[in-house]
Simulated assay, not measured.
Amino acid sequence: MAVSKDRLNDLINHLSDHDLELISDLVERLALHNVRHIPVDDEPTTQDDLEAIQAAHKAMEKGELISLKDIEHELRN
């Protein structure tokens, strides 16, 4: 999916100041580190993978989600 810079600007304009700080950190990391060289994972899905996906869906249904605060901490460190 192609996303234009104008669309990104529109989205950014709707963010709160608190969110801007987080997004700025993320965009800076993407801009400074070339992640295009990471190969696509072409390995087949294993039974362990399928079980992990199923467990994640069950956790989501139970409301056992990772908090935004934890995600923010992980992105900043």
Rank of each mutant, 00 (worst) to 15 (best):
V3A: 05
V3R: 03
S4K: 05
S4C: 06
S4R: 05
K5S: 04
R7P: 00
R7L: 11
L8F: 13
N9S: 09
L11E: 06
L11T: 06
N13F: 03
N13C: 01
N13M: 07
H14M: 13
H14N: 12
S16T: 15
S16P: 02
S16W: 01
D17P: 04
D17A: 12
H18L: 04
D19P: 03
L20G: 03
L22N: 04
L22A: 07
I23V: 15
S24F: 04
D25P: 01
D25Q: 10
D25V: 13
V27G: 04
V27C: 08
V27S: 06
E28P: 00
E28D: 09
A31Q: 12
L32P: 00
H33M: 10
H33K: 14
H33G: 03
H33W: 03
V35E: 10
V35R: 11
R36N: 11
R36W: 12
H37P: 00
H37F: 07
H37G: 14
P39S: 04
V40P: 00
V40K: 10
V40E: 08
D41H: 03
D41N: 15
D41R: 10
E43F: 06
E43N: 05
P44N: 06
T45S: 02
T46V: 03
D48M: 06
D48N: 08
D49A: 09
A52K: 11
Q54M: 07
A55V: 02
A55K: 15
A56Q: 09
A56M: 05
H57S: 07
K58I: 07
K58G: 00
A59E: 06
A59K: 13
A59C: 04
M60L: 10
M60I: 15
E61S: 08
E61R: 14
G63L: 04
E64M: 06
E64L: 05
L65D: 10
I66F: 07
S67K: 14
S67L: 13
L68C: 09
L68A: 15
K69G: 04
K69Y: 03
K69W: 07
D70R: 14
I71T: 13
E72Y: 05
E72T: 10
H73L: 11
H73T: 14
E74L: 14
L75A: 13
L75T: 08
